[in-house]
Simulated assay, not measured.
Amino acid sequence: MNDAIHSSKAPEPVGLYPHARRVGNLLFLSGVGPRQRGSRDIPGVTLNAQGEIVDYDIATQCRSVFDNVRNILEECGSSWERLVDVTVFLTNMKADFKTYNAIYADYFRDNQPARTTVEVLSLPTPIAIELKCIATID
């Protein structure tokens, strides 16, 4: 089975891709950021008139992106506890890793999937964090 899944709860994709794709009993999520569905506002981000980041709160963005991942998983028939691999992209490792890591520990206290965290120069929208996840599904 190879099914593309479009979530009704997750932020609209910024390109031509599904929120997730099911292959067998695995669910591969596309990159998920902190944006909110149906809104141009980004939780924890203040933009200037040109759409450039003026200020951001990494804690707010972390919670929002984790909630978005949870919504996609649940809508797809999986769950937070079924995450097996998480890749995290941060745009400022030096400034944000400590806060992100503490919030991550709260969210992943019981389920501890494999994890990779990398710093990237930028992401497709003015955000500071994005997750790429793999989960199991029945």
Rank of each mutant, 00 (worst) to 15 (best):
E81Q: 12
D55P: 00
S30G: 05
I58L: 08
G31L: 10
T60S: 11
E81V: 03
R109G: 00
F66S: 04
M1Y: 14
Q50E: 13
R22I: 03
S79Q: 11
G77K: 14
Q112F: 01
Q61F: 05
A95N: 10
V69I: 06
N48D: 15
I42P: 10
M1V: 06
E81R: 15
R82P: 02
G44F: 11
S8I: 13
Y107T: 06
L121D: 15
T116R: 13
Q61N: 08
A102P: 00
P43C: 11
R70Y: 00
F66A: 01
A20L: 05
P13V: 10
V120C: 04
R21E: 09
N92D: 15
E12K: 13
T46F: 14
L27C: 05
T46E: 12
A114P: 09
N101S: 11
R37N: 08
R35L: 08
L26I: 09
M1T: 09
R82T: 10
N101F: 05
G24E: 04
G77S: 07
Y100A: 05
I5F: 14
V69N: 05
L26M: 10
V84M: 08
E130R: 08
G31T: 09
S39I: 12
A10V: 13
K132T: 11
R63M: 01
I53V: 13
E74Q: 11
Y100F: 12
P124E: 00
N101D: 15
V45G: 04
H19F: 06
I5E: 10
Y17A: 03
N68Y: 00
Y107V: 09
S64R: 10
S39V: 12
F66P: 09
A128E: 00
I5N: 13
Y104A: 15
